[in-house]
Amino acid sequence: MDEKKTKLLAAQIRLETLRTIGALGFGHVPGSMDLADLMAVLYGEVMHYDPKNPRWEDRDWFVLSKGHAGPVAYATFGIMGFYPMEEAYTLNKPHTHFPSHTDRLLTPGVDLTTGSLGLGISTAVGAAKGIKIDGKDSRVYCVVGDGEADEGQVWEALHFAYAHKLDNLTVFIDKNNYQLDGATADILDHGDIAKKVEGFGLYVQEIDGHDVGAIYQAIMNAQAKKGVPSCIVLDTIKGKGATFAEGTGAHSSQPSKEQWAEAIAASEKAYEALKNA
């Protein structure tokens, strides 16, 4: 893996995520920004896809079960050439193809529709099962929020993935420790979520979700594991790279114009610094 290139891509994804949401002025900034490093590894180094043929039948699949992080996917797909980046700046405007939550009927690159929390992982599991039935080598990558894991259906899906030996499935849990009403530990404490998933029989790794090298290595480890689905718990900082959101734990953001300008300028600066390094 080219670490420098991947870090640069992550910085670009953060910048475009901010521009995408910033065009309207409000949205789910925090839970989008914390996934930029994962998206850079997946779309820059790991996944097989064709931006000109998003439904290519031998592609790898990506399911954003925490659908409200749509903007980070839209930024990634735009950068990778699924559509001109500017199109995503229509986010949530009338008749846009870029809604808050990812929709397979609207946005090139979106494999399955998500938004009602807990549902997306089941569809990811179904896709992984369908790929197995066809005897294909494609893999399915699914991102679940730690707050989302309050939903019982997440655990039904993990149970199914284990029982059906879906080793072509990797579930990422975005453990940013916050959900809408506050800290996950205060809302409905999971305890050790990695151990819980391990208890469901999955091959589990817990890593720094902002370390692109660690993310890449964990995915390679997961791919090497046969007979069981895998889970990678990403320890992340909600809002990472958004000056007004990082470290606040907020679920959505509606910063002032000045705050937007400051955040985008800081993100541009971070991107340029990496580009010129």
Binding site: E57, R104, D111, L112, L119, G120, I121, S122, T123, A124, V125, G126, A127, A128, K129, G130, I131, I133, D134, G152, Q153, E156, A157, H159, F160
Partner: peptide
């Protein structure tokens, strides 16, 4: 509930 989601995912793969 999971079965319904699995069914939808299968459908997405052309089943």
């Amino acid at each position: 509930a999971n079965a319904a989601g699995v069914a939808a995912g299968l459908a997405a793969t052309g089943k």
